[in-house]
Structures are given as C-alpha cells and as structure tokens.
Simulated scan of single mutants.
Amino acid sequence: MKVVQLIDTLRAGGAERMAVNMATVFSQASIDNMLIVSRETGMQADRLDSRTQLQVLHKKGSLDWRAFRKLLRLVREFSPDILHVHSTSLYWGVPLKWFLKDVTLIWHDHYGLSDQLKEGDRKIERFCSSWIDGVVSVNEKLKNWAIQDLGMQSKNVVMISNFPHLKELDRFKRLNNEKVILFQLANFRPQKNHFLAVKSLKILLDKYQLEAELWLAGSTELDQQYTVEVNQLIEDLDLSDQVQILGEVEDVEDILEKASVGLLTSDSEGLPVSLLEYGLAALPVVVTEVGQCKKVLENGKYGVLVPVNDERLFAKALKELLEDYPKAIQMGEEFHKHTLHSYGGEKFLMNYKQFVESI
C-alpha cells in the first residue's frame, strides 16, 4: 500500500495533527507515504517522521492552476494506491481523481460542526460524492450523514476514531505544581467557545475562592474578530493577570506536563484530538458533552462531562475536581490507560487497512 495525504496546511488544528499522526504510523509500519500540503506548512511539520516525504504546493487560491499541475505531477510520480484527502482538500482531490482514475479516493471528514449539521448543508461535498470511493468519519453523526445525506453506500463509509501522538513526557510532573493551571488546546474559533472557559474561571475565583490560571493555546489568526472578543471579555472580567493566551505552541508536551486540568468548552466537535492528547498525558479533564466526547470518556468514567455553554456547572465541576485532586489524578491515570488501549495508532492503522481493502 502506498498513500498520499493531501491537507490544506500544517498549522495547529485537529485535522492537521491527524494528518501528521497518520504519516507517523504509516512510516512506522513501513508504508510508503507522502504528505502534500496545498497552502503552507506550520509547526506540525516539525513533528513529521523523517521517512515521510513532505511536499508544499504554496497554493494561492482555489483556481491556482500552477499549484494543481505540481500536485498532479507529484502524485503521478509517486503512483499511490490511496489518495487520502482531509476536510476541504476534497475540493482538489476530486479533480485529481479525474486524471488518476485508478487511484482510490478516501475523504477524511473532520467536520467540527457535526452537532449543528442540517439537511441541505455542505452542497460542494454533495457534488463531489460521485467521485469519492470511501469516507472516513471521525464520529457517528458524520458517518450517518455520509450515508443518508451524501448518498454513500454504507460499506464505503467507516467511523475510525482519531488518535493522539506525543513525544515522551513526564505525566507526574504536575504533582509538583505550586499553582493550578487550567489548560485549553483549541484554535480561536466561535465553535470552541473560549468565553465559557473565561467565565468559568471568573466564577472559580470569585464564588469559590480558588486560585487558578487559565492558559489558552491555539491559533489566534483564524478568526481575528473572535480573538478580539475573547480578549475583551478577559479585560472586562479583570482577568488579565490570570489568563494567558499562548497562541500556537511548538512544544505542547511541556504545557501538558505542567497543566493541572485539561478543558474543552466547545459548542460542537467531531472527535477532538486535543481531548485524546489530554488522555495520553494523563490529564484530568472537564469537557462539554459534544461530538464523541461522551463516548471517549465513557459517560464520565474517565473525565467530567458538562452541558454546553453552562459556566455555572462548568465552574462547579472544576471546583469539585480541584478539591479532591488526588482522585482527579487517579481519574487522569485511568484516562491514560483507556486512551492507549482504545485510541492508539496501531488500532487506527488496523481499522484503516481493513476498510481500504474492503472498498
């Protein structure tokens, strides 16, 4: 099996981290693979296995014919069995399929607003469906959407969970912390609802009289107006000394070692890679009940689930977790074991190969 992956960028983001993680497990399994980035690389490129071929097209727009010709040449020369396109890279994957009819086109659907999908949404994806050979969905809602709304045959759609991959870290380092650090790894976009994290911190400090800091990591450039609004809320609530906006971080392992609790405050998700990274780092977590989070945490067995956009319940959950932190640490350790067993790269690869062979 030879695989070419196509993705828009390698900046911070769940789909981008998954593309790099997949390249890593392909290389570790001695599967020839190439990762083609259509626009620009980013910090995720530094995490690539040296055996993976990386190519960048520097695409200037959706109709950049020069970049498309380079893409076509690269794929023809590599001669893959599988063309695996992530998210909106499908829009170039389909024209590529027109020229390379023997390649199997797999679309990896990471759509983060799966909880808000309505009938008639995603018209371009519907148009592209005739040329898609298989769909990998990151949660059951997206799998069902691909069958019912996209019109794919059920045998050509599979739900395969994301998986994390981190450098070695000391997951017990946080026991020596002199301060409580609440950590959220999420790009600054409206669906991530950083407002909930900030408001919950305010309640934790004022109502429950617990000292804590909030560290927010993720790209601040994807929706600059949203970033401005988050900063304004921090200022309005007089939390400038307690909240750090870190932007994109190169060494997330260093922060995961220091963090006391991992947060996810999204209004909608697919299967957040950041949650699985919290698990790999044995981090106690408080997350909103969106996407696959409930399934990942097995209904609260491995972390605390809170309804969407309820800062009072979110703050209360944080308070209870912090007041019995030894119990929280034990829950984090169980989450670590669960993540290794149920969301490892080897399991992903086994399921992926079985799916590809069945198409």
Rank of each mutant, 00 (worst) to 15 (best):
179 K>T: 15
32 D>Q: 13
204 L>V: 11
326 P>H: 10
155 K>E: 07
183 F>E: 04
229 E>I: 00
110 H>V: 01
284 P>I: 13
336 H>Y: 15
69 R>N: 07
326 P>T: 10
132 I>C: 07
324 D>R: 08
340 L>C: 09
345 G>N: 07
293 C>I: 09
306 V>C: 04
110 H>F: 01
211 E>F: 07
194 H>K: 03
177 N>P: 12
284 P>R: 15
127 F>M: 11
126 R>V: 12
225 Q>E: 11
345 G>Q: 05
56 V>C: 14
315 A>W: 06
227 T>N: 12
80 P>N: 08
192 K>C: 07
11 R>C: 01
94 V>Y: 04
357 E>V: 00
283 L>Q: 11
334 E>H: 15
226 Y>M: 00
194 H>Q: 15
238 D>V: 11
70 K>S: 14
176 N>P: 00
335 F>P: 09
191 Q>I: 09
272 P>R: 04
305 L>K: 06
215 W>V: 03
350 M>C: 03
325 Y>M: 09
167 K>G: 13
244 Q>N: 05
307 P>W: 10
122 R>M: 12
32 D>S: 13
11 R>V: 00
89 S>R: 07
66 R>V: 13
17 R>H: 08
184 Q>L: 04
277 E>F: 01
203 I>C: 04
70 K>N: 13
124 I>T: 12
237 L>Y: 05
324 D>P: 02
233 L>P: 01
302 Y>E: 04
22 M>S: 12
270 G>S: 05
127 F>P: 00
306 V>L: 04
13 G>D: 03
211 E>N: 15
171 R>E: 01
40 E>D: 11
212 A>T: 09
160 I>H: 02
7 I>W: 05
89 S>E: 11
33 N>E: 07
171 R>P: 00
340 L>G: 10
130 S>E: 01
182 L>F: 03
26 F>A: 02
272 P>D: 05
175 L>H: 06
297 L>A: 04
283 L>P: 11
41 T>Q: 08
70 K>M: 13
318 L>P: 13
354 Q>L: 14
43 M>D: 03
144 N>Q: 15
272 P>W: 03
257 E>P: 11
70 K>W: 01
31 I>H: 09
146 A>M: 03
142 L>V: 10
333 E>Y: 07
196 L>P: 08
340 L>T: 01
38 S>V: 00
346 E>I: 07
30 S>G: 02
274 S>V: 09
351 N>R: 13
118 K>V: 05
323 E>F: 03
